[in-house]
Simulated assay, not measured.
Amino acid sequence: MTDTPETLRVGILGAGSIFGAYARGLGMVDHLPIVRVADLDQERARAGARKWDIPAWGDADALLADPDVDIVVNITQPAFHAELTEAALRAGKHVYVEKPLAATTAKARENLAVAAETGRVLGCAPDTFLGSAAQTARAAVDSGLIGRPFAATSFVRSSRVETWHQDPSFLFRDGGGPVLDWGPYHLAALVNLLGPVSHVVGVTDRAAEQIVVTAPERRVDRIDVEVDTHASALLKFASGAVVTAMYSFDVWDTTLPHLEIYGTGGTLHLPDPNTFDGPVLVRRRGDEDWSEVPPVMPRVTPDPPTPFRALGVADLAAHLGGEPHRASGEFAYHVLEVLSALEDRDIADGVTEITSTTERPAPVTQRP
């Protein structure tokens, strides 16, 4: 990034559960002030604006019509991503959207086409691979610390969302599920390390047809499960590496690692890809124990840790100033196509060839 980045004003669509993380994170970036927040629930938008000292609030139409908004951050529910992203692009705004890029690959392709048509930039979460842990692992892989990476494991267990979210219904409907909710964090980290995916095979299931919500101040008591909530898969990467993956809302407890990379000369152990920071461990063949890989950049999240999102929006803004676009719409589309191939699958479906590809994002060479 440049030493004196241009100020770009941000409007946030959605004041739900992740809004605070974006408000906190963007509040730490001087050149990305939040000037407006919008939500279907006007009281929630007003309360969010007051809490985070945001000067304007209202509905989506007012935000999109506001000439003071340069970048729209779309953190609405997945079912509304595509519609609101297109509206924002056509309103002349650059857009950064929460994952997934859209609920379907068809809608995601339409969004990419509209971005090209309007000359606007489209970025997408997750941005966690821009943090210190993923970038340290990337430097380790690129330096040959573990030799040639030939395999990896990627395991996601339930966040027990029904115990803390007031209404997690959207996670159990189309556009939700563990594959599209948790999968992007892991797959973005893997593509950053290993490059694009070429083939997918897997099987999905669900442990229950209904979920009991026990969260305090819950708005619903039970949720009908409309998507598969457990997926097991093999991902073949164009580099030749094979990844064993499990993405599940049904597995509550496990001793499995979050993410490990296996090379011809050793193993890398990464922290939860849904976080930006944390130690990366290495054990090379012949080592008696694990050791920490020296971080290539300082931690990017607040200390002590609190919910934080901002790097992807800063990445988009830096791209407008000439930097590489790492958390790009094209990158997110490849992640979405791979994960979409893992939804509602039976073993009889065989192997799915992935038609899209993407470049490995440029390494982060300085603290975002």
Rank of each mutant, 00 (worst) to 15 (best):
D349T: 01
S328F: 07
G176W: 00
V300M: 07
V35Q: 09
D53Q: 15
H199E: 15
P304V: 14
G16W: 04
A79P: 00
V191K: 02
G176S: 05
P196R: 11
T4D: 08
A65H: 04
I75Y: 02
L63V: 14
E209N: 14
E86R: 14
S198R: 02
E288T: 00
P294G: 14
V37M: 03
L180N: 04
S239H: 10
L122Y: 01
V37K: 10
D277A: 10
A65S: 10
V203Q: 07
A49I: 00
L281K: 10
D30Q: 05
H258W: 15
T358R: 06
T365L: 13
S158T: 12
G48Y: 02
V212Y: 03
T275Q: 03
K93N: 08
E110G: 15
A189E: 06
A49G: 00
A116Y: 09
D3K: 04
S198M: 02
L122Q: 03
S143L: 08
D346A: 13
L130G: 08
L311V: 00
I12G: 02
V10P: 09
D61N: 04
T357H: 14
P363D: 12
E98L: 11
A15K: 10
E260D: 09
A314P: 04
L122T: 02
P126K: 00
D41G: 14
P5D: 07
E83K: 05
G286M: 07
S132V: 05
L64S: 03
A115F: 12
L268H: 03
F150Q: 08
D53H: 07
S198N: 06
L122F: 01
I211F: 09
H199A: 14
T204H: 11
Y22E: 03
G240M: 01
L84T: 02
D59R: 00
L234Q: 10
S291T: 13
L130I: 03
L235T: 11
P295S: 09
I18W: 07
L64K: 01
R148S: 14
G144Q: 11
P363Q: 13
S328Y: 12
